[in-house]
């Protein structure tokens, strides 16, 4: 179950002699680079636990959050990560900015550059928008979610949380249950998890699996199932995904109640998991739909830890992208 090697011409990839410049997805991260980021995040997490949680390494650097879609945890945790490393932070949301007057993405990027940003953290509704931004920005871009394409920092914090709780990644079985079709989190998770030697099963009604059927051929180790209950006894990590009603066209689901019955993560379903298994959710949750409140609050749930760990992972990424470009 080896992934095809990363194409050597990939312009974003870090090599022995070239430092990583952007974080756009996990598809250009080799396993070792993922593990390096997770290891750095362990040390970053120690800093967050101090009585004075701040180190000076990124003094004088500026990170700009530019968010074309709403967000709570991603934007706040990038901001907290930057401040913990002593960088300054600019925040822009599409709402209330010149975007509403018709400013183009490229012009916005140039404006942010002229204001002195070294790193842009960007969320956008269109898949691929951060790649366009990367071509027009002299600094680094971190993709904080683009359309249904990718959300690499979320995938890294998921891997970090799994390794922290279960002690390893290799050979673990992850079941991702929910709206895979619209999920950028799932797409980045799949890349990262498979590359770290995990097995991934997507579980949802076929209307919410969609084009992921095509990923199966090119991603050995990826499976698709429509029967959550049959998977439970063989699951190490059960991850729920939010039903993304804002992206959903009519007709994908006959009824929310029916979805919940077959695919919802309920307290009863947790009883069928192995003892060590954990429950995750990238948030925000539709409690009572894809996950029940008793399941989200159960001792198996690491959903709040995911949020805390997100700050440590984002610190590791900001540090990794900073400084001179020699390896």
């Amino acid at each position: 179950m080896n992934l095809p090697p990363i194409a050597p011409h990939n312009p974003w990839m870090a090599t022995a002699t070239r430092k990583r410049r952007h974080v756009l997805d996990l598809d250009d991260f080799a396993e070792q680079e993922i593990l390096d980021v997770l290891d750095a995040a362990v040390s970053m997490k120690e800093i967050l636990g101090r009585s004075v949680p701040q180190v000076p390494i990124l003094r004088g650097k500026t990170m700009a959050n530019i968010f074309y879609e709403e967000s709570t945890r991603t934007r706040l945790s990038f901001e907290l990560a930057a401040r913990t490393l002593s960088a300054s932070v600019m925040n822009m949301t599409a709402k209330g900015s010149s975007v509403e007057k018709g400013e183009s993405l490229i012009d916005t990027i140039r404006t942010i550059q002229a204001l002195g940003a070294d790193i842009i953290v960007m969320r956008h509704g269109e898949s691929g928008a951060p790649y366009l931004a990367a071509q027009h920005f002299k600094g680094s871009i971190i993709n904080a979610g683009d359309g249904r394409h990718a959300h690499p920092s979320q995938a890294l914090l998921d891997l970090f949380t799994i390794r922290e709780h279960l002690g390893q990644l290799k050979d673990l079985h992850v079941v991702i249950a929910g709206d895979v079709l619209h999920s950028r989190v799932a797409r980045s998770d799949i890349w990262g998890m498979l590359r770290c030697g995990m097995r991934v099963t997507l579980c949802a009604p076929s209307t919410l699996i969609g084009d992921m059927q095509m990923w199966k051929a090119s991603h050995p180790g990826l499976r698709i199932s429509y029967d959550l209950d049959a998977l439970l006894p063989h699951t190490d990590v059960l991850m729920g995904l939010r039903l993304q009603k804002e992206r959903m066209q009519a007709g994908l689901l006959p009824a929310l109640r029916e979805y919940s019955t077959y695919f919802g993560i309920s307290a009863e379903r947790l009883d069928h998991l192995p003892k060590h298994a954990i429950v995750m959710h990238p948030g925000p949750m539709n409690e009572g739909v894809e996950i029940m409140p008793e399941a989200a609050d159960s001792p198996r749930s690491v959903i709040e830890t995911q949020v805390t760990n997100g700050v440590a992972i984002r610190m590791a990424l900001l540090y990794r992208l900073s400084g001179e470009t020699q390896a």
């Binding site: 390096d36 750095a40 970053m44 540090y319 992208l321 900073s322 400084g323 001179e324 470009t325 020699q326």
Partner: peptide, 8 residues
């Protein structure tokens, strides 16, 4: 001058 180090 030296860039970020891989291992913290």
């Amino acid at each position: 001058i030296r860039g970020p180090s891989t291992h913290i």
